[in-house]
């Protein structure tokens, strides 16, 4: 039986103040040793992602190879993120690397399917070996005020995940307000999310610094109040090392250093990895690198 759900009284979020704070943190200047440290840390937090209609086993295998061998002595990424039907391919390709396989599920990206279909979607991905499930919430239900439905669905999917970690995508670009982002964050955490994630990457705006700030505040407050730590994944639109480092600063100064590990913070991205690798080369050689000096996949 699904427990009835009540959202606690949450303080409001003032948009202007939240955006000012995020913008101010974005002016932190991370240089030299700190930059090197940040780049390597960011690489380990990447969920290297391909979520295209045109994805094929070949494309996924190439991505997995990149995840396992990013180049030089660069560390490995946290996970590879694919559609459910390509989970098995990714699992085989990453066997023995320690890199996780994340699968989007629950009729990603819209989430517009019957619950039964979402449950099957999830079950199959888990059975194929996905270690992490990235589900989307029902934004329609959320925006129409049916929070119970959103909650119940997360609880149901969570139970289908078994050992796999559940990341709950809020699709903040459709929730529009930071108050909604905070509310949805708490709802997802109360329903059992292991991670809360900003976006599918299919809706604009995707991850932004202030949205992530609000979510980091939510996991910080949730742990203080409920004693359970929940991770945060920023996904969509994070393309440069500079962007990634800004997210790390945000984590460091909002949720705190406890979240500064791949276990608790992820960056969902595809092209980001190459920029991180190029910046890494620049730091070690002193010269700017170019796209031909990192691999394409």
């Amino acid at each position: 039986m699904v427990p009835t759900f009540t959202l606690p009284q949450l303080p409001g979020v003032d948009q202007v103040g939240a955006e000012e704070r995020a913008a101010r943190l974005a002016t932190r200047s991370i240089k030299t040793t700190a930059k090197a440290q940040a780049i390597d840390l960011a690489i380990t937090m990447v969920d290297l992602t391909t979520l295209e209609g045109a994805d094929t086993p070949g494309k996924v295998r190439a991505l997995c190879a990149k995840a396992a061998h990013p180049g030089g002595d660069a560390p490995r990424v946290a996970a590879v993120c694919v559609y459910p039907d390509l989970v098995a391919t990714a699992v085989r390709a990453l066997h023995g690397t320690g890199i996780g396989v994340a699968s989007v599920a629950t009729a990603f990206p819209s989430g517009r399917a019957p619950l039964e279909a979402k449950l099957i979607d999830t079950r199959l991905a888990v059975e194929d070996g996905a270690t992490e499930i990235d589900m989307v919430i029902d934004r329609g239900a959320f925006l129409s005020g049916d929070l119970q439905k959103v909650y119940d669905e997360i609880v149901a999917i969570k139970s289908e995940c078994r050992q796999a970690h559940l990341k709950v995508i809020l699709e903040t670009g459709e929730l529009v307000t930071y108050d909604n982002v905070r509310k949805a964050s708490w709802l997802a955490m109360l329903a059992g999310a292991d991670f809360i994630k900003t976006s599918t990457g299919k809706v604009s705006p995707a991850a932004t610094l202030p949205v992530t700030l609000v979510m980091l505040e939510a996991v910080r407050d949730f742990r203080a109040e409920q004693g359970r730590q929940v991770g945060v994944k920023a996904a969509g639109g994070i393309r440069t090392a500079k962007d990634a480092i800004r997210y790390l600063v945000l984590v460091n100064e909002t949720a705190g250093p406890d979240w500064l590990t791949p276990q608790w913070f992820r960056l969902g991205a595809s092209s980001l990895l190459n920029d991180l690798l190029m910046q890494r080369q620049k730091l070690s050689t002193g010269a700017y690198s170019g796209p031909d000096y990192v691999t394409l996949d």
Binding site: R28, T33, A34
Partner: peptide, 8 residues
Amino acid sequence: MFEYAPAP
């Protein structure tokens, strides 16, 4: 820990 290096 993520230490910020001096950025003068």
